[in-house]
Amino acid sequence: MIDATHYVVLSLILFCLGLIGVMVRRNFITVLMSLELMFNAVNLNLIAFSFRLSDLAGQVLAIFVITVAAAEAAIGLGLIIALVRLKDTVALDEADVMRG
């Protein structure tokens, strides 16, 4: 029987992949994708626990997470468009006017 621990391990791997993606990709769009990966990892956790507990709360929270992730993606993409208009680039590390 596959128990929740398996899912948690999978979710951990996915989460770390997303986290590393946020840190290593230069392209703002792929960074956004990596963020989505992290949110998916969380959802996997929530739903695995929801099943184990036979409790719907986890699934409901997962729905909220998906919705918020969608909203976040919309704002992120809006920022990308503004960035491209200003600097003609999507490379995240070229936004480095402020430092120190």
């Binding site: 929740a4 948690v8 099943f51 184990r52 036979s54």
Partner: peptide, 12 residues
Amino acid sequence: VLVSGHGDGTAL
């Protein structure tokens, strides 16, 4: 340790 549970899909 995860919380104990039996994984009963019907409740969902």
